[in-house]
Structure formats: structure tokens, C-alpha cells
Amino acid sequence: MTEFGFIEHIRTSFATLPDNGFEGIGDDCAVLPAGTDAEGREEVLLFTADLLTEGVHFLRRATPARELGRKALAVNLSDIAAMGGRPVATLLSIALPRDAAGTWAEEFMAGYRELSERYATALVGGDTTRSESGITINVTAIGRAPAAHVKRRSTARPGDVVFAAGELGASGAGLRDILAGRLDTPLAAAHRNPEPQVAEGLWLGAREEVHAMMDLSDGLASDLGHILERSAAGAEIDLERIPVAAGSDLRTAACGGEDYRLLFTAAADAAEELAAAFRARFGRPVYPIGRITAGRELVWMRDGRPEPLDWHGFTHY
């Protein structure tokens, strides 16, 4: 069973249970109505969880504990940002082997606190236990957003422009460096230290011309497919317009995971104005890389012509 086959099995198995007001499986976060804010706007709470396992998501010998603490939180804040929300709290559960229960754990928590402080995000609970086979970390993040600002994967429309909110491929190239023993390169540091685009997500969430959004965790080739599936749409992506990070390459930019840049679609007639406003606000560009189509396939284009490429992002199983 594939990862997404398993997720679909879970979704189907639990479909007859009451949802208790939650909008659940299918987006970066689960959504729960939360009344109105001081201005009378309907608000929602956003919930997401992410797991990091030693030997699968990180190598302890290659990742300082403080950096791993920041990363464990960053990947969850990225999910909140992808829905247009503001992070407010987290819960942390961690299983530690005996040799990581002292100084390593303290350094891990120092990194986790640094990023929590940067985004004014409270740590409100969790669990700790002993592990006999490596470190396992699970973070649940909670965010808030005006209901009208929440962006989903299911709302891309034919004709929308597809944007990436930053260069791609640095993390994938950094992972190659780490696996080759090159631990001190800028690309290896980029892999270990993702930056969640929290301010960008809040800003894009407030823009009506932005339709669908998610973050790039498993790679453009896989993650865009989630938007297409949920939106019952297709896409054409111009290979020459994919923003390749320095030191990476086109295939890594398209297929490598853990860039944690925002991927979003926006109305074509507002795309240029949106891109200019983003640059004015953040001092860097967003990159139009293609368009949503009425078909059901992802088509790679080169110089205006389809190019048959069997490209896929990271798969968990």
C-alpha cells in the first residue's frame, strides 16, 4: 500500500464517524470553526501534526540537536502558513534513547524554543518517553485564521497561474551533500534549517485572488499533484521557469523535498499585480511557473511543447 493509499484507507474507514465540526483529512491542516474575533469576523483554528524519525528524516551524526529542534517546529509552522494562518501553540512529543536524554535533549529544546519565540508560539503540552531504537519527534501545531482567509488545496481553477514563493532544490541538493559526508556546505545547512514562510502565508491568505495553496515538503512533482487531485484539475509547468536554487539542478528543484516554500495558484488577471505587490512587501519575487488546466494531468512543458518526464517527488513508502 502506498502512503496515499493508506491515507485514503483511513479516510474511508473513519468517514461514518461524526466530524464534530472539523474539516479534516485532505489539506495541510484540519480546520475547526472558532467563533468570531474582535472585529466580528468568523475565525477558525488550524491543527497539523508532523513526525520526524531518526534514520528516515534526519541523521543524528549530521544534524546538531539545536538545528533539529528548530526544524521539528519549522515544518509544522509551514503547514499553518500554507493554510493562511498564524501559529499560536504547539504540543511536542519525543521519544529519546538513553544517550540523547541529557545534553542532546537540552540543545534540542533550546532550538525549539528559539523558533517558538520568533513566532510567539506557546508550547502547551506533549509527552516524553524512552526509545530503544533512535529518536522520534512528533509536533502538533495549532494556528488561527479568519475563515475567509483559509486557503485549501481544492480551490485551484482552470486558468490560474501557478506560483512558487521562492527558489527550489536547495534542500534536496543539501541532502545529497549530507549523504556524501559534506556536512558543512551552505546547501547542507539549508536542508537542516528550513524557514517557514509564516508572514508570506498570512499575506497570501488575505489576498482574494489567491485560490489554492500548500507548502512544498515532498517536492513540486508530488505536491502539485495534491492540488490537482483535490481541485479535479490539471496543470502545465514550464520547466524553464522553475526557479532553481544556486548549487542545485532542475530535476532536484522539481522532485527534491523539504524546501518548504509556498506553492499557490492565483487568478490570471491579477497575477502580475500580485507578484509586484509581493515583491514590494517582502523584497523578493514569487515565480510564475505554469498554469492550471481543465485536464486531469500534470504536463511538463519545455519551450511551449510537452516533454514526457516520469518525475516524482519524495514518497514515504
Rank of each mutant, 00 (worst) to 15 (best):
residue 69 G to S: 09
residue 79 D to T: 03
residue 74 A to M: 07
residue 91 L to S: 09
residue 81 A to C: 12
residue 85 G to E: 09
residue 77 L to V: 10
residue 94 I to Y: 00
residue 84 G to D: 10
residue 90 T to H: 12
residue 69 G to I: 07
residue 100 A to E: 14
residue 72 A to T: 05
residue 83 M to Q: 12
residue 92 L to C: 06
residue 86 R to W: 10
residue 78 S to F: 02
residue 82 A to R: 08
residue 60 R to A: 08
residue 63 T to K: 11
residue 91 L to D: 06
residue 68 L to E: 06
residue 100 A to C: 15
residue 80 I to C: 05
residue 71 K to Y: 13
residue 77 L to C: 09
residue 96 L to D: 05
residue 89 A to N: 07
residue 88 V to Q: 11
residue 63 T to R: 10
residue 61 R to H: 09
residue 74 A to Y: 05
residue 56 V to S: 11
residue 104 W to V: 02
residue 82 A to V: 08
residue 64 P to W: 14
residue 83 M to D: 03
residue 80 I to E: 06
residue 55 G to D: 11
residue 72 A to K: 07
residue 50 D to I: 01
residue 54 E to D: 09
residue 61 R to K: 09
residue 52 L to Q: 03
residue 103 T to K: 04
residue 52 L to P: 00
residue 57 H to P: 07
residue 97 P to S: 06
residue 101 A to I: 00
residue 50 D to C: 02
residue 98 R to W: 14
residue 82 A to M: 09
residue 108 F to K: 11
residue 53 T to E: 15
residue 72 A to N: 02
residue 105 A to H: 15
residue 80 I to V: 15
residue 91 L to T: 08
residue 81 A to L: 12
residue 98 R to A: 05
residue 80 I to R: 09
residue 90 T to I: 15
residue 102 G to T: 12
residue 103 T to G: 10
residue 65 A to P: 02
residue 102 G to M: 04
residue 88 V to Y: 03
residue 105 A to R: 07
residue 97 P to N: 07
residue 97 P to R: 08
residue 56 V to E: 08
residue 78 S to K: 01
residue 82 A to C: 12
residue 86 R to P: 09
residue 51 L to D: 07
residue 66 R to I: 10
residue 65 A to M: 11
residue 68 L to V: 08
residue 103 T to N: 04
residue 61 R to V: 02
residue 100 A to H: 15
residue 65 A to V: 10
residue 108 F to T: 11
residue 90 T to C: 07
residue 99 D to C: 00
residue 69 G to C: 10
residue 53 T to K: 08
residue 63 T to W: 15
residue 105 A to N: 15
residue 81 A to G: 10
residue 80 I to P: 04
residue 103 T to Y: 00
residue 89 A to C: 07
residue 53 T to Y: 13
residue 62 A to Y: 13
residue 76 N to R: 14
residue 64 P to S: 00
residue 82 A to I: 04
residue 78 S to D: 07
residue 59 L to K: 10
residue 101 A to H: 01
residue 107 E to P: 13
residue 92 L to A: 06
residue 92 L to R: 14
residue 99 D to G: 06
residue 84 G to T: 11
residue 65 A to I: 08
residue 77 L to R: 07
residue 108 F to W: 01
residue 91 L to R: 15
residue 95 A to E: 04
residue 53 T to H: 12
residue 50 D to E: 04
residue 106 E to L: 12
residue 92 L to P: 05
residue 56 V to N: 01
residue 67 E to F: 03
residue 97 P to V: 01
residue 75 V to I: 12
residue 63 T to G: 00
residue 50 D to N: 04
residue 54 E to C: 10
residue 72 A to Q: 06
residue 98 R to L: 04
residue 77 L to H: 11
residue 102 G to V: 00
residue 84 G to Y: 01
residue 84 G to A: 12
residue 73 L to P: 06
residue 63 T to Q: 08
residue 64 P to Y: 12
residue 108 F to R: 03
residue 66 R to S: 09
residue 107 E to S: 14
residue 79 D to G: 01
residue 60 R to H: 09
residue 98 R to H: 14
residue 73 L to G: 05
residue 70 R to I: 02
residue 83 M to T: 06
residue 57 H to A: 13
residue 58 F to W: 06
residue 106 E to H: 03
residue 67 E to V: 00
